[in-house]
């Protein structure tokens, strides 16, 4: 539940991690089954925690995509049915854009242009939130998303799903310099994580036995490689190479190319909960621009960010005039 400002009134998260953990990853069919049963109770609790009644609600925001079709269908249809039944306007929004907009809950004055990094289990995107309100993707992953890289790395290290938090925890007692994993070499501002994953696999196979300290060192070094690869691309977007290898700034954005050209950098998405990423990002980017990494509970998938996105879209284009379908391959639009 989000109020004007935007102001966070309540944010109820029903995690399915426990449901999927035995399978080592998200099972779409189970996710969709659980969605049907949990959505109304979660909405009820969000209203309750905000101390709100339906009579006080002005509009309904709902994720139109991207994501698993079975889950999107439930949200899109249930959200719009409620809205119609209560005579409320609906705004369908992009889940990805919402990860960027979540930063408004940390700073309500935040306005584009913003350089954003969205990192999750499904995405690793570098974006420009432009002055005209549109979001342009300037870098994306060539293979795995950062979250997938964590999940796969965790599996190689014998850690439970979800991999990100497991590696984060174990890495705290490891040496990030113990193993020099290769840094991904995708062209331009793109990401690639398959190389570092393969390198981890070889490191593990090389050893006959792995002590707990070694495992922690591997986790820390692996995490360091991913964090470094992510931040390296953010830096590259701030300082385009002289060879012009990186895409030039878009019209109307201005002041790109000089130190401090980006007033604001936002890092969002589930992987932005990673403590090492937050720490190193602060150290490397904090002095170059205003860096906003929303609180962990606003980085993980949540409805508060969808509410903020709905407020932003409302100002930009107004509510959706007619019922719409889920769009599993929707981008930031």
């Amino acid at each position: 539940m989000v109020g004007d400002g935007p102001r966070l009134l309540s944010n109820v998260i029903r995690s399915q991690d426990a449901l999927h953990a035995p399978y080592g990853g998200v099972v779409p069919e189970l996710a969709a089954r659980a969605h049907l049963q949990t959505l109304v109770p979660v909405i009820e609790r969000a209203l309750e925690e905000a101390g709100t009644r339906w009579e006080q609600i002005d509009a309904v925001g709902v994720t139109r995509g991207p994501g698993l079709i079975g889950c999107l269908l439930v949200g899109v249809n249930l959200g719009q049915a409620i809205a119609w039944a209560r005579g409320l306007p609906v705004i369908g929004v992009s889940h990805l854009a919402a990860h960027v907009y979540a930063a408004l809950l940390e700073d309500e004055q935040l306005r584009p242009p913003v350089l954003g990094l969205v990192v999750s289990g499904g995405h690793s995107d570098l974006i420009r939130w432009q002055a005209n309100g549109e979001i342009a993707v300037i870098g994306r992953t060539r293979d795995d998303a950062a979250g997938e890289a964590f999940d796969k790395g965790a599996r190689i290290l014998g850690l439970p799903f979800p991999g990100g938090p497991a590696i984060d925890k174990l890495a705290a007692s490891g040496d990030p310099k113990a193993v020099a994993f290769p840094r991904p070499r995708a062209p331009g501002l793109d990401f690639s994580f398959s190389g570092v994953k393969t390198a981890l696999l070889y490191e593990v196979r090389k050893r006959k036995t792995i002590s707990e300290q070694e495992r922690a060192d591997l986790a820390a070094s692996y995490q360091e490689a991913i964090v470094d690869a992510l931040l390296q691309r953010v830096e590259a977007a701030i300082f385009p190479s002289p060879s012009g290898q990186f895409p030039p700034p878009l019209a109307g954005e201005g002041r790109v190319g000089a130190v401090g050209s980006w007033q604001t950098i936002v890092i969002g998405g589930g992987v932005a909960r990673n403590r090492r990423l937050r720490e190193v990002a602060q150290a490397r980017l904090g002095h170059l621009a205003r860096l906003i990494i929303p609180a962990p509970e606003l980085c993980t998938d949540n409805a508060a960010m969808i509410g903020v996105a709905a407020l932003i879209e409302w100002d930009r284009r107004g509510p959706d005039p007619a019922p719409f379908d889920a769009d599993p391959s929707l981008g930031f639009g």
């Binding site: 969709a32 959505l39 109304v40 439930v74 719009q80 049915a81 209560r86």
Partner: peptide
């Protein structure tokens, strides 16, 4: 149909809940 069922059940649940 997996898709059809999700549409129908979500719509019905949303309407019943909202009213």
């Amino acid at each position: 149909s997996f898709t059809g069922l999700r549409v129908g059940l979500s719509l019905a649940a949303g309407l019943a809940y909202a009213r």
